[in-house]
């Protein structure tokens, strides 16, 4: 799993790098526009340690933001699950809000909360929150009639059991959605840092942009890709463990 994710990223990364160098040598661009391979190596050696710390900082914020978003989406989806007035309101609000490019409100968050951790955390969380919420509402709001019927007619159905049945029956979808939204959390954190924070790899990218230093950008992209892949693999392993614990693997082997 790890090998697959990393090799996929490395292939894409080095293909992109190769393309960039091909453009440089084909059009005879100067090292100022696109640095040569040696310059890239030197830059990597110079900034690697600092960028590594920055990526870990960003990843930490992204993970916490992601967990917060998952927790919030779960709670809201459970509350918005029934076909009553509250449920309808929550679903309508979720569908309408997700249609708005939420990253555009990031400046307001920075103005109100400053350029520290809370702003980065909040933006990371809201970037991945709405896709999670829509999926969770869809999954937890859809009855599994074949299983639920017995509990309903015998008066045993409780909301906890209903949620458990629907989550269990859709565990593959839930894990896919959670894994897929991890990248969004990372994107949200980097965007937040890029816009207004004073730390993290997004902040480093902003400085590299102001310096027009493509070598630094490439080093940052490499580290972001590696650590994002590691996070996705960790989530996939967690999903595998959950499925195994719940006995879902036996079902899929039928």
């Amino acid at each position: 799993m790890l090998h697959k994710r990393l090799s996929q990223f490395l292939i894409i990364y080095f293909l992109g790098l190769g393309l960039l160098l091909a453009v440089k040598y084909c059009f005879g661009l100067s090292d100022y526009v696109i640095p040569g391979f040696t310059d890239m190596q030197n830059t990597a050696q110079a900034v690697a340690a600092g960028y590594l710390r920055a990526v870990l900082d960003t990843l930490g914020v992204a993970v916490i933001g992601h967990v917060l978003a998952i927790a919030l989406a779960t709670v809201v989806a459970i509350v918005g699950r029934p076909d009553n007035l509250l449920g309808t309101m929550i679903k309508t609000a979720a569908y309408n809000l997700q249609a708005y490019p939420i990253v555009a409100v990031a400046p307001i968050i920075f103005i109100l909360l400053g350029d520290g951790l809370p702003s980065r955390l909040l933006i990371a969380a809201i970037i991945c929150y709405f896709p999670l919420l829509l999926s969770f509402i869809g999954i937890l709001g859809e009855p599994v009639a074949g299983i639920e019927h017995f509990y309903v007619v015998t008066g045993r159905m409780r909301w906890q059991l209903e949620v458990k049945i629907r989550a269990f029956e859709n565990i593959h979808k839930l894990i896919t959605v959670v894994t897929g939204s991890a990248t969004l959390a990372m994107v949200g954190t980097i965007v937040a840092e890029f816009i207004g924070a004073d730390s993290g790899i997004g902040y480093s990218l902003r400085i590299a942009l102001y310096q027009s230093d493509i070598a630094k950008v490439l080093v940052a992209l490499f580290l972001i890709g590696v650590f994002n892949s590691l996070y996705l693999v960790a989530l996939e392993l967690l999903g595998l463990a959950v499925r195994k614990r719940m006995g879902v693997e036996q079902r899929t082997q039928q």
């Binding site: 299983i147 017995f150 719940m246 006995g247």
Partner: peptide
């Protein structure tokens, strides 16, 4: 006959 028992136990 289309009913199912939960799969977690």
């Amino acid at each position: 006959n289309t009913e199912r028992l939960p799969g977690w136990s």
